[in-house]
């Protein structure tokens, strides 16, 4: 599924609900399907700064594609990171780097987008893009050496 299709699917899922409670319940549910980070990757260096709750994010690069695992001690944060992983997982680095995340606004999670001290969504997106950028840079330089 293309990144656009993935976003549209998520927008459609959230648009089934008008009520914030239902939207948040859906988000919390999504958190339960998160590809959970292996406990030995729950290190300080995998912690994302800028979040009031703790979020660990780990990435690996396989067959030119990026795969993420994560976890958080807060269930809403866990839902948000799993939502991002649904959109980004298994994509080539370039697509992740260039991805537009404006869809989050459309699903009624706007309050998580504002850059307040307590908010980690922006940091999560930034970290995912940084991973993708690192993999791409390594990939490109490996290619040159070949």
């Amino acid at each position: 599924m293309s990144i656009e299709d993935r976003k549209q699917k998520i927008i459609a899922e959230f648009s089934m609900f008008d009520d914030w409670m239902d939207k948040y319940n859906l988000l919390i549910e999504m958190g339960k399907s998160l590809p959970v980070i292996d406990p030995h990757h729950k290190t300080k260096s995998n912690l994302i700064s800028g979040c009031q709750s703790r979020v660990w994010l780990q990435a690996r690069y396989e067959n030119n594609r990026v795969y993420f695992t994560a976890n958080s001690d807060a269930v809403i944060t866990k839902g948000i990171v799993s939502l991002l992983i649904r959109v980004f997982n298994g994509l080539p680095p370039k697509e992740i780097i260039e991805a537009d995340t404006a869809f989050l606004d459309k699903i009624g999670l706007k309050e998580h987008l504002s850059p307040t001290r307590s908010n980690g969504l922006t940091s999560m997106i930034k970290q995912m893009k940084l991973y993708a950028l690192a993999f791409k840079t390594k990939h490109d330089s490996d290619k040159k050496e070949d």
Binding site: W20, M21, Y24, Q52, S53, D73, A74, V75, I76, T77, E111, R117, S118
Partner: peptide, 20 residues
């Protein structure tokens, strides 16, 4: 319940308080 999660629900119900 993580205070951050609780803070979001409080906010949704119109209550401004601080977590952290």
């Amino acid at each position: 319940i993580h205070p951050y999660d609780a803070g979001i629900i409080f906010d949704k119900t119109g209550i401004a308080l601080r977590t952290g």
